[in-house]
Structures are given as structure tokens and as C-alpha cells.
Design a protein around this nucleic acid. Structure first.
Length: 266
DNA sequence: AGTACCACCTGACGGC
DNA sequence: TGCCGTCAGGTGGTAC
């Protein structure tokens, strides 16, 4: 699930809960050792015990948390999320990493399918370079966006999802952006003229900001959004824009929803 | 460079 | 009720 809007919501959640409190202890369940590919889990625990979270930063789908030591870097895979809680009875189901604070609260990193990653880094710049991430989708300038897409050959959906081109857009939001912009997901990037690239850019911004404001919860998205239709098959229902029939296919190997009637193939 | 396919994991769901 | 195949919004590697 977690794409840019989701991670931005996680960031806000963390910012309003677990900051500036001493970490009494850090727990990593054994099964979760695989989440740590850049650092030994024991060292992770050692370095963070006694520290406190001081600052949050999001880049693409990655959440970086500053401490009075190194930064914690969290990636959520397909099923990750954070939960701050006190009573063990309210703990989520698949806690993989847990930070316990002096105030009795705990922050859990829950990751059911173990497809996320946890590490330590010197800071956002070093991390972005190491992971070869492109500029954040919400901070890139229109010019930089156009420039980067100008060097692309393949399908527009694939380009949007390429984290080294721009960071943050995943399968669901790529579909949403293309739906709102009216471009078929298999359109070839070189076929988009400047004005259409501009539309893609501004639509991407609008979709990301609107969905963040809605708490990244599809049930709260405004009318006319595609994402809520992914639930219960979605395909076969009618497009609120043009009445066409929403279709479900694969593009670049990923499940794709779109409206063949108004999303033009370029 | 782009694409297709497999792999990494767990759990939910539909069909029989 | 239970078993089985299929699928899921993440990325990374490989081979063509």
C-alpha cells in the first residue's frame, strides 16, 4: 500500500506522537532480521537505545527520522505501517520493530509481508544518493520534471513509477494520476508534447496533495477519483467522468485500472 | 533502454 | 468446513 501519500500520513502521525522522548529499548523480532540489509539489527538496537527522535523527513516512499545520533530510515514495502500505543492489547498484528519510550508508549513498525526495509543513515542526502532515488514527486520543479521525462522512451505509467526518475508514485497513484490527466497508461512518453507533460505534472501534484489531505484513505477521496473503485473488483463500473466502463488489465506486469473511453492513447 | 519474468513473504478470497 | 490456486498497492535481479 504505502506510496507517497500514505508515507506522508505516517510522517505526520509520527511527528505528532513519538517525538522527543527517550527510547528506553528497541526490539527487533527475529523474523524481521531480513528487513535489515544494510545494518546488523544488533547494531541498530545499540545505536538507538537511549536516543530520541528529533525530526521527520519523507522522500518518496521513504520515511527518515532524525535522532540525536544517526537517522532511522523506514521503507514500508507493500504492507507496512506505524502504530503508537500504550496497552499491549492494542498492539497491531505483525510488529517487527518496536521502540519503547520512557512515557510508557511504544512505536511499532508493523510489516506483515516483510517486504519493507529498515536501516540507519547519516541523513537524507546520503540516503537518497545511496538508494539512487530521484527527486521527490511533491518537490520536483516543473522544469526538472519535464527534463527528466524528456529522456524517457517507454510507457508513461512505468515512468511515473520509476523511483529513480521521480520518487513516491506507485502502482495505485500512477493509475490515479493518469486517469485524472486523461492519458492511457500505455502511452509512450515521447508522444507527450510539452503541454501534456505539463498536465501530467500538475495533475500529479494535485492528486498527491488531495489524497494526503484525505488522509490517504480512498474512502475519503473526493468524488470522481479512480482509486476507490479498485475495491471489489472495480472493473465493470462506470467512469464518473465519461460513463465509460472501467477496465482492469496489466501494464508493465502491474494491475492497472483505467477508463478506455476518455484516457487517450498517445 | 525497455520489458518480461521470477523472487522475496504472508494472508485474504473465491471456487470446488 | 477445508484445501488449493490466485492475487495483492513494494523492490531487485536476470535475461533477452
Amino acid at each position: 500500500m504505502p506510496e507517497l501519500p500514505d508515507v506522508e500520513v505516517f510522517r505526520g502521525y509520527l511527528q505528532s506522537t513519538a517525538m522527543h522522548q527517550p527510547i528506553i529499548s528497541v526490539t527487533v523480532v527475529e523474523k524481521a532480521y531480513r528487513l535489515f540489509d544494510d545494518i546488523d539489527p544488533e547494531q541498530f538496537i545499540d545505536e538507538l537505545t537511549g536516543r530520541a527522535f528529533t525530526e521527520t523527513h519523507r522522500h518518496g516512499k521513504h520515511l527518515l527520522v532524525a535522532t540525536d545520533g544517526r537517522w532511522v530510515a523506514l521503507h514500508f514495502g507493500m504492507t507496512g505501517f506505524l502504530k503508537y500505543y500504550k496497552r499491549e492489547a492494542t498492539a497491531p498484528d505483525h510488529v517487527r520493530v518496536r521502540f519503547d519510550f520512557t512515557n510508557g508508549y511504544r512505536l511499532a513498525y508493523d510489516c506483515q509481508r516483510l517486504l519493507g526495509h529498515v536501516s540507519l543513515t547519516d541523513g537524507p542526502e546520503a540516503y537518497i544518493a545511496e538508494k539512487e532515488l530521484g527527486p521527490d514527486a511533491l518537490r520536483i520543479s516543473p522544469d526538472a520534471f519535464r527534463e527528466r521525462f524528456a529522456r524517457r522512451r517507454g510507457m508513461v505509467k512505468t515512468a511515473l513509477m520509476d523511483q529513480s526518475l521521480i520518487a513516491g508514485v506507485g502502482n495505485v497513484y500512477a493509475d490515479e494520476v493518469l486517469y485524472q490527466a486523461g492519458f492511457h497508461p500505455e502511452s509512450k512518453v515521447p508522444n507527450l508534447v510539452d503541454e501534456q507533460l505539463q498536465t501530467l505534472y500538475s495533475t500529479m501534484n494535485a492528486v498527491l496533495e488531495t489524497t494526503i489531505d484525505a488522509g490517504a484513505d480512498p474512502a475519503s477521496f473526493p468524488n470522481g477519483f479512480l482509486t476507490p473503485m479498485r475495491r471489489d473488483g472495480g472493473a465493470g463500473t462506470n467512469c464518473p467522468h465519461c460513463g465509460g466502463e472501467i477496465e482492469k488489465t496489466k501494464v508493465g506486469g502491474r494491475t492497472t485500472y483505467y477508463c478506455p473511453r476518455h484516457q487517450q492513447q498517445l
